[in-house]
Nucleic acid binder design. Structure first.
Length: 599
RNA sequence: GGUCCGGUAGCUCAGCUGGAUAGAGCACCAGCCUUCUAAGCUGGGGGUCAUUGGUUCGAAUCCAAUCCGGGUCACCA
């Protein structure tokens, strides 16, 4: 139990004893950290009790403070300032805390529970390479998977690849027309990029054809339908659905190029999946569910054979679930995949990391599954995130105005190299170590940049401004960590010492404010971790880790660790920095960010 | 138009389950390296928390309305 909630319970208990006739429960008690300008560590707000107890704040505070001081061994002092009861935690409590936990590398982790959660993320289309927007999705999903694991869930990381449909047919048609037999190997272009280039090519040609038809007097709407390259693409889709062997083998070949490309990118990013679904495998499954729904009378068929669901009770319109020709739409396959996931893994929860432009779709998905009585419905959680935009607006792959993921990663690593060299910090590293270090710093900065913001907020990225390596960044946190490691190296103390280390430590000298401040922050970590899991929000961990690193830097500047005033202080500070480093590593590991021991 | 989300310092963002004088980073200004890594630290300037009204002992936070920006409402995915 965290200290804050211990205090809450102690206060609840105190009220019970002091005012047996009046009911005050935990939910009415607010415990905050005391503002730095006042003396104390935690604060109980007294205002809510004035009416109930019919007393002045000072009187309540005094009784409560006296009781807590007297009947518990948590506090050494209290002070009442205009309606706030500021409590000071005993130094011996802090001392005991740090001694008990400083070797615990899994501080904050919860025990494994019997709760299975799937996190689906990345989920790319196979007609183009990954761009900056996908990176936000991927890092969010990967981070959430780790955060949920730390919170005791059994996590399945899933990727649902949208490998079929008109989009890939567009690339296929363009490649057939203009590709002249190019392959990734032959021209030395990464497979996903090559296929993406033809997707852009398709749209260029398409636009030209429309313009030409329009110039010949056709109206624009008709021209969009009549353009020959679009007709070819649609024709190819029909052939694909009919199982045409030539089309299928072309499709397989081009998709395999893309997968190879994706694998390279995923590997570089340091992300992986436990389960990969392909829509070409799952798109038929939804049909059965829909047909069952019609039989049950939950869904209805129109004269043309199309199937619909009525959502007017939920404040929406009616929604198509199956086309008149019996082919499935986006929603159909999602219904099937949701059920498949649930049946395959007996999931308690299924998290979808999908941009907020699909809020409506995800909402409807859940409602329809509920209507159909599918048990998978209630575990669905849409982790909706805002899209990454350029200053010029949204990224559109078909217009080619995207910040490519591979390019971005490379740029970040180069930036890390540049700045490391500029700072003259390359000494004492081998060539291989430097390569690894630049990757650690560059990728770390990129991940942190995308994870430090509340997921639901959209973000604008200006490619002209490079991502910073100063201030609120992964680099800052890595640097604090490296500094700690450096101290420990000099002191010949391992990063994670044996638990018997400092057994002889006794807390007798009063703690300095900065010592208390860091220990208090360390103690808070499990709460932050639990919150991030409950709220599906990795950014709170980024904020926390940054603040902790900042506290360490301030401490480092103000007090010496190696040359502490006494052996006791030295031991205390070593324990503090060992645990600080450990939590920084733990928290950044959740974000998929590596922590160097030297930089 | 219906609906959902956002609007906090010049810029990027915390804070939003109501609590003390609204916080960081970047940028700007002034300091700090014979002492554990200056990718750092200290200090400074900079705010009508979009607007108005309401609830409350107390509102950036909750409620309502308005303004601004965006998403979405397809036999696209």
């Amino acid at each position: 139990m965290t200290l804050a909630s211990q205090i809450k319970h102690a206060a609840e208990d105190a009220f019970k004893r002091l005012y047996p006739d009046i009911h005050i429960d935990c939910t009415m008690i607010t415990v905050n950290q005391t503002k730095p300008e006042f003396k104390g560590d935690y604060t109980i707000v007294l205002f809510p009790f004035l009416k109930l107890l019919k007393q002045k704040p000072d009187a309540i505070g005094k009784q409560l403070g006296d009781f807590l001081l007297d009947k518990t061994d948590l506090f050494s002092a209290y002070e009442i300032v205009s309606g706030f009861l500021n409590l000071t935690i005993r130094d011996t409590c802090w001392g005991a805390f740090i001694l008990n936990h400083f070797t615990d590398t899994r501080f904050g982790d919860k025990c494994k529970a019997d709760c299975r959660v799937m996190v689906e993320y990345s989920s790319p289309n196979t007609n183009k390479p990954l761009h900056f927007g996908h990176l936000r999705n991927i890092f969010l999903g990967a981070a959430m998977a780790e955060i949920l694991k730390a919170n005791g869930k059994q996590v399945v990381k899933a990727n649902l690849i949208n490998d079929r449909g008109i989009h890939i047919c567009k690339s296929m048609v363009a490649w057939e027309r203009y590709g002249t037999g190019d392959t990734p190997e032959r021209i030395g272009v990464k497979g996903d990029h090559l296929v993406g280039d033809y997707y852009v090519k398709f749209n260029d040609v398409y636009k030209q054809e429309i313009a030409k038809l329009a110039a010949d007097g056709m109206d624009e709407k008709t021209a969009e339908k009549e353009a020959s390259i679009m007709k070819e693409a649609q024709n190819m889709l029909r052939k694909w659905e009919a199982g045409d062997t030539d089309v299928k083998s072309l499709w397989q070949m081009m998709n395999s190029w893309v997968y190879k490309g994706f694998d390279v990118t995923y590997k570089k990013l340091g992300v992986s999946f436990d389960k990969v679904y392909y829509e070409s495998d799952t798109y038929l499954l939804g049909k059965k569910i829909v047909e069952d729904g019609v039989r049950k009378g939950v869904l209805y068929k129109k004269e043309d054979g199309s199937v619909w669901v009525d959502l007017k009770d939920e404040g929406h319109d009616e929604k198509l679930l199956l086309r008149g020709d019996g082919t499935s739409v986006y929603m159909t396959q999602d219904l099937g995949t949701a059920k498949l996931k649930y049946d395959e893994f007996k999931l308690n929860q299924s998290v979808y990391v999908i941009a907020d432009e699909q809020n409506y779709h995800m909402n409807v998905l859940k409602i329809v599954l509920k209507k159909l009585g599918e048990p998978c419905a209630h575990g669905i959680y849409h982790l909706s995130y805002g899209m990454v935009e350029l200053p010029s607006g949204r990224m559109k792959s078909r217009e080619g105005n995207v910040v490519d993921a591979d390019d971005m990663v490379e740029e970040m690593i180069n930036l890390a190299k540049e700045q490391t060299e500029q700072a003259g910090k390359t000494e004492g590293f081998s060539k291989d170590e430097l390569v690894k270090l630049y990757e650690t710093i560059g990728l770390g900065a990129l991940k942190f940049y995308l994870l430090r913001v509340d997921p639901k907020k959209k973000m604008i990225f200006d490619p002209k401004e490079s991502i910073d390596l100063h201030g609120f960044t992964a680099t800052f946190i890595q640097y604090a960590h490296a500094r700690i490691c450096s101290i420990l190296r000099k002191e010949n103390v391992p990063l994670v010492p044996d638990a018997t280390k400092f057994q002889s430590f006794t807390q007798s000298a009063p703690l300095l404010p900065l010592e208390t401040k860091i220990i208090l922050a360390l103690e808070e970590y499990p709460l932050i971790l639990a919150d991030a899991g409950a709220e599906f929000n990795p950014s709170s961990i980024c904020n926390y880790a940054f603040q902790l690193a900042q506290m360490f830097n301030t401490f480092y500047d103000a007090h010496s660790i190696s040359k502490a005033e006494s052996e006791e202080k030295k031991q205390l500070r070593l324990m503090i920095i060992i645990m600080t480093a450990s939590i920084l590593r733990h928290s950044m590991h959740l974000m998929g960010i590596r922590m160097p021991e030297k930089m």
